[in-house]
Design a protein around this nucleic acid. Structure first.
Length: 716
DNA sequence: GACCTGCTGCGGCCTG
């Protein structure tokens, strides 16, 4: 029997009505497996290869929807993705008379109420909405979701390795605890590459024995072009913009310039060039600080612009699977911080099966060029940075303790401990540690003991009853920008934000007329000339793998024909510049440049290792400078012996803790990258720092492994 | 110079 024959008749009719010539490879593979086994599956396949159908065609054929209760729960990281998938899944479900309900913060209340009256069919939800239900309406969890057959998790890679992912893992376990029968999980992803990560994925889905991987490895042809236009960080070179304009004026393009300020710069300046030469007007910007309705309009325009060209300058907001239709070319300005990101971005072009992807990588300095080459080579070698596993997610545990207690009407300690013990998310955290955290929450009035039962305490109520409770990530508050009642976006309060200052936002130029500090609002009017907006933020971490590859490229003789002529020359000069070091083994050796009074240490190490080295320098009292963009440390020649000293240092766990306590006491805000970590006892905060911000194990392994290679002759 | 993600309940106002 073919995969098609295995499907139920209504589904086959749906396929015939769609006039599909055949099923996609990934669907052929998934249909018999999902239909004929009770396993969990991870479906890995390229963007737009029919993954959603690969999951839903067999699930809808298999599941008995006659029984009362929601049978399939689809979980997505984005509201926009839920709205897209709703249209697709509902169309499919019309053939089977199955109800599909959206459940997220912007979904209709009436539809939600209707579902509560008639719990049935399929629900599309976000992790945060699920959390909110556990907290505020725990009986609805049971009422709606205790008869689940399948859970589908979309874009699973966006959860792996993040606190949000740990949060979801905990919610999945709590859902399983509310179900009499074991539900199956089908996870979808475009970017899981290394076979080593399968174990991680299987563990994530909670049942490694019964979890299988289905993947389509068919390569997709990609045309890649590298272009080099040197310029300062502050402003993009005009030549680059002109070149970009000429390349893209008669096609559909996504440009990824890595930062919101630069996104605006690209959108506004390309639009100005286009106006001057009479090109199309469809230049947009798309990032988290562009007003939501404006962003939705941009997405709508792109999806429906079959006859019109457009150019959207964007951040990672357009990285995940939101449907914006077909794009001819993807442009990356300066290197991505991860290979995963590069994969997602490349996947946005050439979405049709017969079309190849087009990628153009611009660089504005030699380090960025080097990083771009590294990411590209690793991409072609099918590497992805490893997933960061949190062994002991104390901060998520603290949040989940509050959630469990709030969702109950008083809980004995044994009951609370039992619920946590049953949740594999926290299996590496000991019962003693859990009790410590509960006691601490009691002390700071987040929990309170009423008789022998725990309830939420006075301080806890403030936190738990706030709408900010449901997520595991921070969002800064910005000033809302509008013009004459029309919402445009938002800006952080930087020195740049002053009355009469002109600024770019939403691909337009504005003059700031009035700032209302009380209500955090900015009123603007259109203007002719201005500057790109400044956003506060930290650079994303760069993986060790990428930095190591950069060193490898510098000390290899390989000629890359994908580079343009200037790029070839820049790389050649760069190699000559570093040839003063006789590096023969890139795994073990690191350059140390002796120049006048200063030493430059080229660590070529991942951001976490470098941050840990910074902490060690501070601890020893070395006066140093560190540049994250090129992974270089600079310090006085007189400190040279200290580098050897650090190398010889083997701090034990206790010593590391003492250092971290000292830093935390001096600067408590250093834990703030973890939203809930700030409420933990100090020693748990130190553990979070040790595993998330720093990495002492890898840092010492790295330092012990490497030999310093000095320059052979003097350099000015 | 530096990414992104989500959101309950309730009171109050408006419209049909």
């Amino acid at each position: 029997m073919t995969a098609f024959d295995l499907l139920s008749e209504p589904i086959r009719k749906y396929i015939r009505d769609q006039r599909w010539e055949s099923l996609r490879k990934i669907q052929e593979a998934s249909i018999p497996r999902i239909l004929q086994t009770e396993n969990n599956y991870v479906i890995i396949s390229k963007t737009a290869s029919g993954k959603t159908e690969a999951a839903f065609l067999p699930i809808l054929s298999k599941v008995n929807f006659k029984e009362r209760g929601v049978k399939v729960l689809y979980i997505s990281p984005l509201i926009a993705l839920i709205n897209d998938q709703f249209v697709r899944v509902e169309k499919l479900c019309e053939y089977l008379d199955i109800k599909v309900t959206k459940w997220h913060g912007e979904a209709s209340k009436a539809q939600k109420d209707h579902l509560i009256k008639n719990p049935e069919g399929i629900v599309l939800i976000t992790p945060e909405s699920l959390e909110a239900m556990f907290v505020n309406r725990p009986y609805n969890i049971h009422h709606l979701f205790s008869k689940l057959d399948y859970i589908v998790i979309d874009e699973i890679h966006s959860f792996l390795g993040s606190e949000r992912g740990v949060h979801l893992k905990s919610l999945l376990s709590r859902l399983q605890q509310a179900n009499e029968n074991r539900f199956k999980v089908v996870a979808l992803s475009a970017t899981v590459s290394d076979v080593n990560e399968y174990a991680e994925l299987k563990d994530y889905l909670g049942n490694s024995e019964d979890t299988k991987i289905i993947r389509d490895n068919t390569p997709k042809p990609i045309n890649v072009i590298f272009k080099y236009f040197p310029g300062p960080v502050t402003e993009l070179p005009l030549d680059l913009l002109k070149d970009l304009y000429v390349r893209t004026h008669d096609s559909k393009v996504l440009v990824f310039p890595n930062a919101r300020g630069r996104v605006e710069e690209v959108a506004v300046k390309l639009k100005m060039i286009s106006e001057r030469v009479g090109g199309h007007k469809n230049y947009f910007s798309h990032h988290s600080s562009v007003d939501k309705e404006v962003r939705e309009y941009v997405e709508f325009f792109a999806k429906n612009a079959s006859l019109q060209n457009f150019c959207i300058s964007c951040t990672s907001t357009l990285e995940l699977g939101i449907d914006i239709g077909n794009v001819d070319e993807v442009v990356q300005i300066d290197a991505t911080n991860s290979i995963a990101s590069l994969i997602q971005r490349v996947g946005r072009s050439g979405r049709r099966e017969d079309k190849s992807s087009n990628l153009c990588l611009y660089s504005t300095d030699k380090w960025s060029l080097l990083q771009s080459i590294a990411c590209w080579l690793l991409y072609t070698e099918k590497y992805i940075e490893p997933i960061q596993v949190t062994e002991k997610p104390y901060d998520v545990l603290l949040h989940q303790i509050l959630s469990i207690v709030k969702g109950s009407s008083g809980l004995y300690l044994v009951e609370l401990l039992d619920k946590i013990a049953k949740n594999p998310t926290f299996s590496n955290i000991t019962e003693i540690e859990v009790k410590d955290i509960i006691n601490h929450l009691n002390q700071i009035d987040f929990l309170e003991k009423l008789g022998n039962e725990y309830i939420i305490g006075v301080e806890g109520e403030k936190v738990v009853n706030n709408k900010d409770f449901y997520s595991l990530f921070h969002t800064p508050t910005f000033f809302k920008v509008s013009s004459n009642g029309v919402k445009i976006g938002e800006l952080p309060l930087t020195p740049q934000v002053r009355e009469d200052e002109n600024v770019y936002l939403s691909a337009k130029i504005w003059k700031i007329k009035y700032i209302d500090f009380e209500s955090k609002k900015i009123e603007v009017i259109p203007a002719k000339d201005g500057r790109k907006p400044l956003f506060l933020g930290d650079a994303a971490d760069t993986a060790h793998l990428i930095r190591e590859k950069m060193l490898e490229i510098l000390f290899s003789k390989e000629v890359y024909d994908f580079l343009d002529q200037v790029g070839q020359l820049v790389l050649q000069y760069f190699r000559v510049e570093l040839s003063v070091f006789k590096v023969t083994n890139v795994k073990k050796q690191r350059p140390l440049l002796n120049s006048n009074d200063n030493i430059f240490f080229y660590s070529f190490a991942g951001s976490q290792i470098n941050k840990t080295i910074c902490l060690l320098f501070e601890e020893i009292g070395i006066d140093y400078r560190y540049d994250e963009s090129c992974s270089i440390f600079q310090f006085k020649h007189s400190e040279l012996d200290l580098l050897e000293k650090i190398k010889a240092t083997k701090l034990n766990d206790d010593q590391i803790n003492q250092i971290l306590y000292k830093h935390l006491e001096r600067n408590p805000s250093m834990i703030n990258f973890s939203k809930w970590g700030a409420y933990l006892p100090l020693r748990f905060q130190a553990e979070i720092l040790k595993n998330k911000l720093y990495n002492f194990d890898e840092c010492f392994t790295f330092l012990n492994k490497i030999d310093y290679v000095f320059n052979e002759h003097d350099v000015d």
